[in-house]
Amino acid sequence: MHHTIDVENLIFKYPDGTHALDGISFHIAPGEKVALVGPNGAGKSTLILHLNGILQGQGMVRVAGLEVIEKNFARVRAAVGLVFQDPDDQLFSPTVFDDVAFGPIYQGLSEAEVRTRVSTALHAVQMQDFAPRVSHHLSVGQKKRISIATVLSMQPEILVLDEPTAGLDPRGRRELIQLLRELPQTMLIATHDLHMVAELLPRTLVMDNGRIAADGNTLALLNDDALLRAHGLEKP
């Protein structure tokens, strides 16, 4: 019952003084699937990096009941699976196996447990035959699925994904949406893909200029032409 995200009045300034996040507050309940949309530079990626302490601002961030502060980092990072936009950043190991095993190894699991976790995670994304493969020979779609497996192997309660459908061809995108639909975790997905949002995520947060501009039912927001235009979005 702890897989929630609570953010209260979060402020983050870049070293040059500009506000990247300017008083963000929201609450995500267990099992909710939430979209985070907004123009480039709105602060979506910056916000995501606060959810497991890679960036730290002023204000309160609580994830799965744990405050995101240094002494909780290990537990927070096991609870939140963060998948970055570019799979070439997410997959940094020589082989697919090494990448999916990375998280569990740092969780301190035994070799046998790690191997079970890797196999389960690769099964979940239907890439079980790819364990010994080398990441750079894979297609973007395959890399994206494996990127998700690299966090599933840590058995997180919450998944946070940055642009999961960017750069995918239509088939790859369709398969990825299917996969996301099947995953039971609480989800926060930052994206420009409003078609996917409409299809998959019942709730939407609209971000602009480091603030939450709107928060509510996806269908209602996507039908609000004035709101979409004000934040540079297009009705799907």
């Binding site: 990072r77 963060l82 970055f84 950043d89 690299t150 966090v151 840590m154």
Partner: peptide, 11 residues
């Protein structure tokens, strides 16, 4: 970015 991705998985 890789360092961020590694840290996110407990590095």
């Amino acid at each position: 970015r890789i360092y961020a991705a590694m840290s996110a998985r407990g590095y």
